[in-house]
Design a protein around this nucleic acid. Structure first.
Lengths: 128, 128
DNA sequence: CTTGAACCTCAAGCCGCTTGAGGGGGTATC
DNA sequence: GATACCCCCTCAAGCGGCTTGAGGTTCAAG
């Protein structure tokens, strides 16, 4: 398949795919008349990269995960990497929950007092 | 107080404070002999900005929230802004929970099978 | 054989900072 | 009042992770 198809299948923009190749997250694609050609393995690899990026892993970290997945490094390293991320994810999770609560109250308060006046309810964020 | 003190009190770097002034999130500070001088109101304003940024509001959105707080726009606008963010936050929350589960299993699996072999357990992330 | 979409490369731009160079202000000590 | 020291100043460039744009090529359909 060509790059546009890969883009659609993975929900990635075409320039982003080229960028990923450039920074080494995707292997240099096979070419046909200058155009990049991809297969299902590429779809899976890119999907993995996408998920990692959605989860805010940096490019560098994704590279590291990829090499771990391909068994190029000892298992303990994978464990450490994962454990580190787990801690980070839990921290972020806690923050997000607090944020959700705060915003939900804000919305409610706005709903209650939206007489068109100024939005003093926003003050809620100050104590979130 | 001078900029270094403000920085410490709000957990912000000094250059970031100057940057916020530059992009209009903080009003141009009073000066004494060329040096910026801040008061408690500035501390509160900056703390608010910091919290918004921690929650991934863009500079533009923070500007908007600040003007809402100062009553320069109708309340409904605050509500819409907040409601939009609430949706986003909930989406991210769901994803993060899934990720937490996935990584936790990964760590466990590594602990169980860490004989120094390759980290095939990372495959877990592929189906997170 | 032409049209038009999809592709190519390369360069520059964007956001939200951080880092660095080169210099001024304030105060405590000699 | 000279020295030392730290904090402050401005301006410019750099960075991560893309997106956007200019200008040209390839391919499939009519």
């Amino acid at each position: 398949m060509r790059i546009g198809v890969l883009a659609k299948r993975t929900g990635t923009s075409v320039p982003t795919i080229r960028y990923y190749e450039q920074v080494g997250l995707l292997r240099p694609a096979a070419r046909s008349g200058g155009q990049r050609i991809y297969d299902n393995q590429d779809v899976r690899r890119l999907a993995f990269v996408r998920r990692c990026r959605d989860f805010d892993y940096s490019i560098e970290e994704v590279r590291s995960l990829l090499s771990l997945m391909h068994g190029e490094k000892p298992c303990t390293e994978a464990r450490d990497l994962a454990a580190g991320h787990l801690a980070g994810v839990r921290r972020k999770l806690a923050e997000l929950k607090a944020l959700e609560t705060a915003i939900a109250s804000l919305v409610k308060e706005c709903d209650a007092s939206c007489a068109g006046g100024p939005a003093s309810a926003c003050v809620i964020l100050q104590t979130a």
